[in-house]
Write a protein that binds this DNA or RNA. Structure first.
Lengths: 245, 245
DNA sequence: AATAATAACTGGTAATGACCACATAACAAC
DNA sequence: GTTGTTATGTGGTCATTACCAGTTATTATT
């Protein structure tokens, strides 16, 4: 990709500069813990103002690629810290990132009136209908998790089985077909034991330990749009988290 | 607290303004989803420049208190979204937040040469010695977790049992006594089954499901300073996470 | 009353300029 | 060779100014 900022491009200059620096980091231009050019050097080199440079650098810092030290410089984060902050991803995205081929078996997809607990989580009045999608998630053809999503749809919105197969990910369907952009989520993780039904679906013994993940997802306007329960086979799933202080 | 920016204060103006706005939000000056004064209004009201206002607002947005919509305004986030991004906290802090009184039984605290795996995680050469602290963590007097920490200390640094009791938290000891500031961490969560020894310590049956949390903590200079394994009783611990996109 | 055009208000991007605070390098004095 | 001072380079804070892009309110036209 280009090493230069296109001053006539609609893409903001700070973003272009951030992308350039990110590429250079990815390509090993600077080793971890090595300093990158100073703000004033970048200002001269790319012919942008120092606030614009600082905005690009702050953006990369936010993503974890670099860190800054007052009076000393700006440094490349050690490789393992060069990861995005904990981000909201779909199950499919999670597995792809781990190098596992995700696939799914759609057990059912229909409109239901869920429990009061779920309606409460979704901030919906009683007797509201939502789309319930039950799926077995597989990684490299092996069952990994059992997932039940409750999606809040508008009156003129619908998701069907073809959508899920075609787009590959529920979040992608929401974004591209419905203009619902999953933005934030709250999750809980806890241990549970497989019921006979769950055991059958996940190909484990009844009573086997499972990891229960419940997630409430909000859209770009902070409105709850999905409540999902995922039961992971305890032996096949490791949840990875990145924390900051 | 003051409603005004002290222009002679050493505390940055953007930070003072952010604190003022945060207090007003906390005190219900604006309801969730209600707009706060525009950037230009705040500029006039507090006699600071618009870039300074924007920096304060960006800070609050980062913390989750507000969200912005291009061309529309700046709004207070719904209450439940007004939470700090997922942050690195100690076990004690976690429980206090949940309204549970944390306490601990220190099983052992001594210098050891840990396994190669742990040395690798801590980026230490072979045969390095670290401080190993084994504790049973209790919430409201009930065993919740078994925690084994491997802490990297400098040659002139030491932590003993009195330190842990006196400061109440390992992170507090590190910060206040050793000037080691835990800043970032990577965690994994997975399900495991209690060995007979673990079962005894946690007062569960052997083979009971446990939640295994492994965390590698970095200090302010991104150096690994602690590797910790925590086994939680599956029936008494729920892990809560906040995600963004 | 409905519709289109315009104005006003909102957040977003960018430059110029100045100064503060921290860290390090260079230099002078002993 | 050591120590203290000064200079330089670094990131951090702040103000002023201008313009862009999105949204909403107001006004004009039909």
């Amino acid at each position: 990709m280009s090493r230069f900022i296109n001053h006539n491009n609609a893409i903001p200059k700070y973003f272009q500069l951030a992308s350039i620096l990110k590429s250079q980091i990815d390509e090993g231009e600077w080793k971890p813990r090595q300093s990158i050019p100073s703000e004033r050097q970048l200002e001269l080199q790319y012919k942008v103002s120092r606030p614009t440079v600082r905005q690009a650098i702050e953006y990369l810092e936010k993503l974890g690629y670099i860190y800054r030290e007052h009076g000393r410089g700006t440094f490349v984060s050690p490789q393992k810290l060069q990861k995005k902050m904990l981000e909201l991803t779909s199950f499919s995205e999670d597995l792809l990132r781990k190098g596992i081929q995700p696939s799914q078996i759609i057990c059912s997809i229909n409109h239901v009136v869920p429990s009061e607990k779920i309606l409460s989580r979704l901030e919906l009045p009683l007797e509201s209908s939502v789309l319930r999608i039950e799926r077995i998630r597989l990684g490299d053809e092996i069952p990994i998790g059992l997932q039940i999503s409750y999606v809040v749809l508008g009156d003129d919105q619908q998701i069907d089985e073809d959508d899920l197969q075609q787009y590959g990910s529920l979040y992608r369907v929401m974004e591209e077909k419905l203009n619902i952009i999953p933005t934030e989520a709250d999750e809980t993780l806890e241990v549970t034991l497989a019921t006979p039904e769950e055991a059958t679906l996940l190909q484990v013994k009844a009573g086997a330990p499972l990891l229960l993940n419940e997630r409430l997802t909000y859209d770009q306007n902070r409105k709850p749009v999905e409540f999902v329960k995922i039961l992971y086979r305890g032996d096949r799933y490791q949840y990875i988290i990145r924390l900051t202080r």
